[in-house]
Computed example of a mutant assay.
Amino acid sequence: MIGYSFGNYIPMEIFNPNFTDENLTKSDYYRLLIAIISAIITFFAVLVALFKDDLRELWKRPIIQFCTPDEMTIEDLNSSLESETASDIPVAKRYYSRIEVKNIGNMPALNAEIYLDKLEYIPKDSTISQNIECSGAALNWNGSESHTIIIPPGGKKLIKIVEILAPEKISTPESEKINKPPLLTIGEIENNKETAKGKWTATFSLYAQNLKPIRFTVEIEWNGVWKTRLTEFKKLYKIAQKI
């Protein structure tokens, strides 16, 4: 019905292009050329005005990389607790593993924070994965008590992601001495003695004011046994960034 009415009451001749055999004059040609160029310039000006922030990010933005330092796991030494003579052999009171954060972009990463977003645990001699609830607290950057920093272009910063404290003897209310086992902490999560042996997969995220969240994942394996020197401890403890 609509097509019938349209065809009968609206003259179709108005849609036919009307060509003439007259050639364009030079002035008409340049006038048309200038109009086309002006339209193109106006189009791109509107495009830039609408998407200038997105276009700026293509050239000026922070670019974050997560790298493994030359020494990912290091030791914090302490003198022997049995004596304090000069002949004491230093022993480790803790080990900790770090990740290096680099900004290879041309703008600083503002108010950068790192959180432990996800932690999975597989007990030794098992294939069943357990999800461990994360605290939601930001990690402290190395050498600072602050959770947030600015990473300038070309800058790099280390952050501790895993810590293992040495076992120690503690006193009970009954004045008894008991052995406290070594304590593994991933991010801000302390693992209890029931989850002291096995494999952990930890996913961390970096958030910044001018950057979308970026994630990296590490895998940790440990049998729960403590050694007083890093050389021996690294035979039992493994950590690697997951690509």
Rank of each mutant, 00 (worst) to 15 (best):
S171K: 08
K197Y: 01
S146N: 11
G105D: 04
L116R: 05
D76P: 00
S38I: 06
S83N: 09
Y96F: 14
E75Q: 10
T127Y: 05
Y30T: 13
Y96P: 03
K234R: 12
V91F: 04
M12P: 03
S205H: 07
G143F: 05
I128L: 10
N223L: 06
S146H: 03
I189Q: 07
E82I: 13
V101F: 04
S38G: 15
A240S: 13
I37H: 05
I2V: 11
G136M: 06
K60F: 10
P173H: 02
I186R: 03
P17W: 05
E113R: 14
I151L: 15
L47M: 11
V162L: 09
K118F: 03
S146R: 09
W222Y: 06
M12N: 05
P108Y: 02
N192L: 06
K157M: 04
N103V: 12
T148W: 00
N103Q: 01
N179G: 04
E71M: 12
P173W: 00
G136E: 06
V218S: 04
E13L: 10
C67W: 02
L230G: 10
G3F: 02
I2E: 07
D117N: 12
Y30G: 02
G224I: 02
L183F: 00
I74K: 05
P167W: 01
Y237P: 12
E113D: 03
E190Y: 04
T25C: 14
E13C: 09
Q209R: 12
N18T: 08
N140L: 08
R56Y: 11
G187S: 05
L183Y: 00
E100G: 07
I214S: 08
L110W: 04
I41C: 14
I151M: 12
G105N: 08
S135L: 02
E75G: 05
L58H: 04
F6S: 11
K197E: 14
A35T: 05
P167H: 00
Y115N: 14
L32R: 12
Y29I: 13
E133Q: 14
T25E: 10
